[in-house]
Design a protein around this nucleic acid. Sequence first.
DNA 1: TCTTTGCATCTAAACGTTTAACAACCTGTA
DNA 2: TACAGGTTGTTAAACGTTTAGATGCAAAGA
Lengths: 344, 344
Amino acid sequence: MASIKDIAAKANVSTATVSYVLNGTRNVSPKTRERVLKVIEEMQYKPNTIAQSLKTKKTDTIGVIAEDVTVFNTPEIIDGIHDCAERHDLHILLVNLRLHKRIGRSFHAVDRFRDVVLSAVDELVGKQVDGMIYVGVHSRDLSGLVPPKDKPIVYTYCYADNAVSVNYDDERAAYEATQYLAGLGHRRIGVISGLIDSIPSRLRFNGFYQAVMDCGLPFDPGLIKTGDWETASGERLTRELMALPEPPTAILAMNDVMAVGVLRAAQEIGVRVPQDLSVMGFDNREFSDYLTPRLTTMEIPLHELGVQSMMALNRIIRDNGAIEEQAKPLCKLIVRDSTGPAPG
Amino acid sequence: MASIKDIAAKANVSTATVSYVLNGTRNVSPKTRERVLKVIEEMQYKPNTIAQSLKTKKTDTIGVIAEDVTVFNTPEIIDGIHDCAERHDLHILLVNLRLHKRIGRSFHAVDRFRDVVLSAVDELVGKQVDGMIYVGVHSRDLSGLVPPKDKPIVYTYCYADNAVSVNYDDERAAYEATQYLAGLGHRRIGVISGLIDSIPSRLRFNGFYQAVMDCGLPFDPGLIKTGDWETASGERLTRELMALPEPPTAILAMNDVMAVGVLRAAQEIGVRVPQDLSVMGFDNREFSDYLTPRLTTMEIPLHELGVQSMMALNRIIRDNGAIEEQAKPLCKLIVRDSTGPAPG
DNA sequence: TCTTTGCATCTAAACGTTTAACAACCTGTA
DNA sequence: TACAGGTTGTTAAACGTTTAGATGCAAAGA
């Protein structure tokens, strides 16, 4: 590979001059510039970014630590990061923790987990990234993790105390979903929540509860069921809800995957959606448009999460820590065919 | 940030010695080793990978050029790449071309496309990656692209003449799907193919045709319909097929998204699946398990594609080009509820 | 006692850039 | 003519590592 020395030699100038024409950091006469440019072209010279970085101490690279790239939220967030990074001429070094495959779903293997994350951080710090973005898959609480001393790190799709984190407004999303159902005349709304120890589960329940109060609906604890985010739990709990003496006229499943179960159960027990029962999901997964009936759901602003994370990181790197609190990106109600006016 | 010099000074040794204990490249007496290690620990020293790379001319980093990380095949392939890269202590520099957002679906903006790819390659070459993997989204033919002179590059989920590319066996997958349907007694099998100018469309048709011949089924060109990979086309073409004087008893849609349309059409015109009509998809997208009925489909070995690409690249880098042809990864038949014995 | 051998450690160059400091030259002005 | 000021170019150090070769020293062999 041709180096700047080769160019300098062939163009009969010093390496400094070549560097100046390359970066435009100083005037160089038109005729030498031309000469240098011609040689560069001829030899197909590309500056060695590694050497540049060593000298300038800037890599223009940010590290992205993804808990699992195969989980639905991650690609969209990374896309958002890229979208923004591109405009600042930043590159992405990706570390994929492969959490599911590595330590399974037992998120309680905390010590193992810590090691994995910390070694990823070390790796990126060694590579001299300018900063890092951590992309979670389940809004886990990462407060226990020691943040790296010198390198800025932004967390998204997860929570971490005493650290910059970017998240959508879960509470408000659930509030709006509930409000929408109430607006259709539903007064008894069943809820199938996710695992109760997850932060989004709590936030979404809060939003639901607040909306129930604000809309003047009766609050019936019997209508609140705790699932595990999987289809089977949605199916099972829907049967329970519909077997109630006074069953709900709408069910809000806290993710689309469980909503699939709701739909299945409804079909099996002969409840028509949306005539007898309105069903809502959460996430706006691609498949929600493929279900019958098409699923009404809340869209999570994943792309925006990526963009905002990148912007936040950039502010920290550039302005060195002027972290102004940003408004949380909002979810968006996607109305399809699984919801309708309350019966009767 | 502490450098090797700081460590050397504090431990009263030369930088060489520190380097030797770090890399184990030369014997160093137990007591100095201990001393050095202690200082390293104290100062939380992490070697500067950039400087190492400059000296050793190895970055242990491979570049991944993804046409679009948000398309379903890409995350799984990247996961496979990571899976394999990890075992060789290689890191991933990710470039996301964001093809859909950038140049839309007009894949005919070829010149623009060339520029985008080539500048991504330049970027990675500048960053001194040891090699590159190009991850397509649609098995496009990339032969027109000039490969970089010195850096090895492996293509996957796309085709490129005169270059190493890793792909699953499309023809055989369609063959097996057809064979499976024939085995259920279906003799008139409808096909809804994707856009005809795509390589997989052609390969899959070949596989289908071969199986029809081998199984002794009649070949009726009227049963072959050309879609555009989208749901609406699946729906429309199914209506056409079922309106035939002698309609098929099974439909093979060449992707799951179109299969959704097939199921919709069937439901609307009152054809029962699988009693009256067997339906098969292709891809085994996550949602295929959420449809009613659950969709029988062919799973593409995406993870394996990633692994094999990484292995191929590694062989080129290490053994410097000893490219032994590898067997193509095979698709896997996933039998669910949308297929059954031919009626009558 | 003087070599020889082997081990532990050090010296210094090199990797490919950037950039401060300097040198040479030209131009215009007093 | 002399000199200030501007322009264009060069020199060489520095970034943080690795590593070939040199050096010093102790133990072993003559």
